[in-house]
Design a protein around this nucleic acid. Structure first.
Lengths: 222, 222
DNA sequence: CATATATTCAACAGATTAGTTGAATAGCAT
DNA sequence: ATGCTATTCAACTAATCTGTTGAATATATG
């Protein structure tokens, strides 16, 4: 292969790789990917949950679809979008974790909005996995119920954070409670743990969310 | 946290994550990351190897530095750039492999420029690792010698592809030869295997490059 | 000190991208 | 069919990005 041809080859090849990078280069698109990791969503739901106009959400979805990272299923009036495969989540995970480890600004943002998060003493997936077999721990899935139905940690109870207050008394006071959520930056579990502690329960946050749990090869039920 | 604050939190957080995505959204920057995975380089070297002007290379390097993905070391007149850590390569690997699995265009490009690549019967890292202990295989590092010096597969011989012709007769005819290179799309090993085969050697290509080998936790020498 | 070289910076032009608005499309309900 | 709703498309503007050019900076050498 001569030099000019070799350059052409590389240009075309890296142009393809960059399609994936470009898809991951917008905050809103990353948020969509993170959201779709919970399960499929209609355009309207995505628009609402990411605070975008429907047209804007649709356009970002087209961009993700052009990079073959999401797929749509049409059902009646609604287009249901989902991640095209597990690797999409893994790639987003790699980007997220690189940002976590290299960009101190991520910590600054977290600290600015989630005061004293360390106090919630997050537990890691592997740690929870061990304790699950001991059976001396109660796991709460504090996401919206629909997400629980789409898959949850085996044995976890579905207690959407808004419903927590109401079911508080049914929770055993003698066992440790671990609340989990959508991902490492999902605040539902922070709120749940704070409420539980204020009522005298021993509660912790699971550091990872369900998609991370699943991607780590841990068992998922339902 | 009220809804408006929550939105602000997410916006700032995902803005940070997107810095990594943006850094990976240009073909040239991906090529730089891929190149730096071989070891550090000066701006001029990067510009030459990626077919860019020096000013352009410098700007892309600034962009990567702003995302804290590369670091520079100044030595006399020269700025030596390197990947900031192993996770940067792993993230690039994730992007690359997502593109490979989801974008059929990657295959089209490879097939268009590397005719009959399958014929070279690539060997996987794990497979090579097993055969290494048997000792019945010769491993050739066909990258420029300097890259060999910066780290290579234990026991591999440094035979830059241009030098292969000259050392052909010193290679044993009775053992299988496996040539490796910079990465899965590096063509040096293709050329080496083609030449070796045309002279009657049993030769194969290692599917992964040295950075992939290293990232997979395989031993690296030198 | 003057000169040479590697790199960075600043200013610019052209291309691409993000978000908005309003219209078009497609499928359901009546 | 008519209306209703979810989604997509098209046109537009503002903002951002890429590459180029030439100047500025920094560090070596004579």
């Amino acid at each position: 292969m001569n030099a000019a041809t070799h350059r052409e080859f590389k240009d075309r090849l890296f142009e393809q790789f960059a399609r994936v990078g470009k898809a991951l280069s917008s905050p809103k698109r990353l948020e969509i990917v993170d959201l779709l990791a919970q399960g499929e969503r209609t355009v309207e739901e995505i628009a609402r949950e990411t605070a975008m106009s429907v047209a804007s959400a649709s356009q970002h979805l087209q961009a993700l679809k052009a990079a073959r990272m999401v797929e749509a299923r049409r059902e009646g009036l609604y287009a249901h979008y989902r991640l095209a495969d597990e690797d999409v989540f893994r790639t987003w995970q790699a980007v997220r974790s690189l940002a976590e480890s290299r960009l101190s600004e991520v910590d600054s943002v977290v600290e600015a909005y989630l005061v004293d998060r360390d106090a919630l003493e997050a537990v890691d997936a592997t740690e929870l996995m061990e304790r699950l077999s001991d059976g001396n721990v109660v796991v709460l899935d504090v996401r919206p119920e629909e997400e629980y139905r789409a898959g949850h940690i085996p044995g976890a109870l579905s207690v959407p954070v808004d419903a927590l207050e109401a079911v508080l008394q049914t929770l055993p006071r003698d066992r440790e409670i671990i609340a989990y959520c959508r991902g490492p930056y999902c605040v539902f579990s922070d709120e749940a743990v704070a409420l539980l502690r204020s009522r005298g329960y021993r509660a912790h946050r699971l550091r990872q969310g369900l998609p991370d749990w699943r991607a780590a090869g841990m068992p998922v039920e339902g």
